[in-house]
Nucleic acid binder design. Structure first.
Lengths: 200, 200, 200, 200
DNA sequence: TATGAATGAGAATTCATTCAT
DNA sequence: TATGAATGAATTCTCATTCAT
């Protein structure tokens, strides 16, 4: 469990996350990370095997959290595909808006992982993708999503949510709640959601 | 003009573009760039003042091209906002699919520019953004775009187009023409385009 | 006594011996030693004061064994210098062939000892040298060794025996017994041994 | 050619040679080498790719010289195997006595080369070995070397010559000429040289 | 005798850049 | 506009060792 790690771990991961997000993996020196975390360079190496492992830990932890959020959201949602899609979009929007550093890093820095780490990351990403694919497929099966391009609209939904991390600033007056409302609406628009007519 | 520069220039920019896109700005050494371009390290410094200037040149050249493509597309389109939006989306999709390296770099590496260069880049990006904003605003004014969230749908359109650079592979069997058709359709869906009823 | 030391000791010395022999003292890290010995780094420091002390212990233990082997061999030999030389050569050949790691280390790594340790090592080495010198001198006195270069032939005998550690591989089909026979013969050749004519 | 290299090269190789011989490859830092050579650390990397390459260059240069010396000696010697063996022993003794640093390094540090470099080194060493093997075989064929152990006596000759580098000090009053005389004599003793009886 | 955490010094190497020509 | 040599600063990472328990 995360909570069982020594306290230095979290400060370290947080410092690395911020540095990587601000300057990019390659432009970040581990010295800066250690300094920001307030620990010695050697301590950093005591906790993690190196810069790359630090990156991997950040990405993995991010995946843990995102996955947990999505699972929780789906668990609360009923069986209706629209409701489930709403749940996923809300979880994604909240994650992107609340974890902007993490999201920026996920977007590009996976290229800096080694082969094995990258494979691990991709596997987890594919699993996340599948959640959306399944929901969209369900909606189509049930005839309530009419989009002629299920895969592309799914990609579009994810892309627009992911982009939030790049421009959203909580100081800007737009609440995350607002965001959620809008993006849920846009997502349903994209899949061309038509609610089932209630039985007379 | 580009064509008046010595031949080394283009090879250099191309090499730098590929390296930056593959490994990220910070993880790329100018030695690798020079080597990939097949020129000497010293020659590199005679063409460009340094690594950062190289990045700036790439981003600027990209902006030149994208802007030119958009302008050309708009010039051919008529005055109808839907038609104009289609033109912009097509230009963007084609650019993202055809210039994946450039697009990846634009996405994140502007953080590695210096203050002045970054300001310049942002100004140009804002201008591109405005093209989309204007078209969407026109469509709303004319009552043919019904989206309640014009700014968010504009962002969504750009985000989904931009994301193409991250996943699209020309070898994958999906032509750029296919892409254009789908993304134009999705974009019109996003702004909730309702064609004007033709006068009887 | 060796047998009274805790069990970790021997595993540790063996691991260090192998590492030092394979990579050299300077290229060996004590972490690797601890790992190879299957003990913790801290445990290593409880057995020995550090890397250098470990080296010293290895060299000293080797000297113990070699000296013991030589003494035993001489004890069994009679008073005849030829017989005694044979005994020493056999002991040396068996040691070099059986303790290749140790022998390689002795050859060069004494330079990595500290002043005091090195002096100790040299004293013991000189004692071993003297055993050979005495035997050769006896043979000369008794007129059965005719070499005009006693010191050089003694050096040659030791050099050829010592070199065994560098090239001999037990898997190679040559038994240690074969080796002993040959090297005894070569040693006697070097000192130009001429057996006393038996009294008529 | 060596002489065409920039002047820094030789100073560098010499400094590295001394350091490696004194402390061992693993215990030598390239900083010390650069300092001893009186050049900057960066300049070192300008000349050589790294520490290992430096070691390889030293070993290779040594092999060049030794081989050149042996070839010259053999060229001057006639066809008589005894004369040829004398020539090789003299060349070897002079090399070991005159190039003690180099000889010490050759003895053990080849383990610090990488796979490819080590293969190269071993190939050259095998060629040198073969020179001795050929001469001994010739002597046996011609019936003037009587040793029952040609391979072992060859090894013994090389071992005793090689060992010179470890103990010989020119300040000690023993000239290299003396050494040559003695080791030539010992070598002929080892192969049990019996001159052909001159025809009556 | 045991140990996991921690560390400062130093390791090899690479960096972007400058300079003399 | 060309270039090979050179460099100081910074890079990631490992080192032998110590310390608190």
């Amino acid at each position: 469990m995360d909570t069982m790690r020594p306290p230095g771990h979290q400060a370290l991961l947080e410092a690395a996350r911020q540095e990587f997000a601000e300057r990019g993996y390659g432009s970040t020196s581990i010295r800066e990370i250690a300094q920001r975390a307030g620990i010695s360079l050697s301590a950093l190496y005591h906790y993690y095997g190196g810069k790359q492992e630090l990156l991997h830990a950040i990405l993995d932890e991010g995946m843990d959290r995102y996955r947990r959020d999505c699972d929780a959201a789906l668990a609360q949602a009923g069986g209706d595909p629209a409701e489930r899609l709403e749940a996923l979009v809300e979880a994604t929007v909240r994650f992107r808006a609340g974890q902007r550093d993490r999201s920026s890093i996920e977007l590009t820095e996976h290229r800096s992982l080694n082969e094995e780490q990258r494979a691990h990351f991709r596997r987890r990403q594919a699993a996340a993708t599948r959640m959306f694919q399944d929901v969209v497929a369900d909606g189509l099966d049930q005839g309530i999503f009419l989009t002629p391009y299920p895969e592309d609209s799914r990609r579009a939904i994810l892309a627009m949510c992911n982009a939030i991390a790049q421009w959203y600033r909580p100081e800007g007056g737009l609440t995350v709640g607002d965001l959620v409302e809008r993006y849920v609406s846009l997502a349903l628009t994209l899949v061309e959601y038509r609610p089932r007519r209630p039985r007379p």
